[in-house]
């Protein structure tokens, strides 16, 4: 039964019928969101690219089973989380992350890709985001996931319950815990400002 009218409804329907062009447009429309989501989840640029590609490949294969019960974006995040967890289970992430990069440097690289502001404001923004990024990586996976979904991807509480298969109360309490822990981790830095 279909009960969620996704903004990409027509493209999804066309892709389900095997229209590769429509599938390409869907990938294009969601690529950035999936990349951002995965990067904040795993904190590794190379792994993000690999996981994003696998996410879309799996999604396109399974698209015929997509039943419009949640927005496509949320459904893609669900696939991305599963792939990320599979990776972690195989301990690949741990090996790469431990030997790969300095989180702070990575955060600065990302911020440098975004819009140009005045040098002082830009510097301040970079610094703020670098602290936030480092603090995010200290959160447990479940808290990190929920805060990325709500505060970065702006999914509603109901959409999060569908993606993560949590009850509404669990979403609320974990979101509170995530924000509280992040606020505590960052309070020293932000209160100095």
């Amino acid at each position: 039964m279909e009960y969620y009218k996704d903004e990409y409804y027509d493209l999804i329907k066309a892709s389900q019928r095997g229209d590769v062009k429509a599938a390409g447009k869907l990938v294009e429309a969601h690529a950035q969101a999936v990349h951002d989501f995965l990067f904040h989840l795993c904190g590794n640029r190379h792994l993000t690219e690999d996981l994003a590609q696998d996410t879309f490949l799996r999604a396109l294969t399974a698209l015929k089973h997509y039943q419009f019960r949640a927005p496509l974006r949320a459904w893609l995040f669900r696939i991305a989380i599963n792939l990320y967890r599979d990776q972690r289970r195989r301990k690949i992430v741990r090996n790469i992350v431990s030997s790969y990069h300095d989180n702070e440097q990575e955060a600065e690289n990302i911020v440098s890709n975004t819009s140009v502001q005045t040098p002082h404001a830009e510097l301040e923004r970079k610094e703020r985001f670098a602290h936030l990024y480092k603090a995010m990586q200290k959160l447990p996976e479940s808290l990190r996931t929920v805060i990325i979904m709500r505060d970065l991807q702006e999914l509603s509480y109901e959409e999060i319950t569908q993606v993560l298969h949590w009850r509404l109360g669990t979403v609320k309490s974990r979101l509170f815990r995530a924000r509280k822990e992040l606020a505590e981790l960052l309070s020293d830095f932000w209160e100095e400002k």
């Binding site: 690529a31 490949l57 294969t61 890709n113 975004t114 992040l182």
Partner: peptide, 28 residues
């Protein structure tokens, strides 16, 4: 909490490779 959310919503983003879509479609 409010500041943290504002910083997150500045949406710093990972650049998507230019050939990402074509690679996905080829794989598909």
């Amino acid at each position: 909490m409010s500041t943290m959310r504002a910083v997150l919503r500045e949406k710093p983003s990972v650049s998507v490779r230019k050939d990402f879509v074509s690679r996905v479609i080829a794989g598909h």
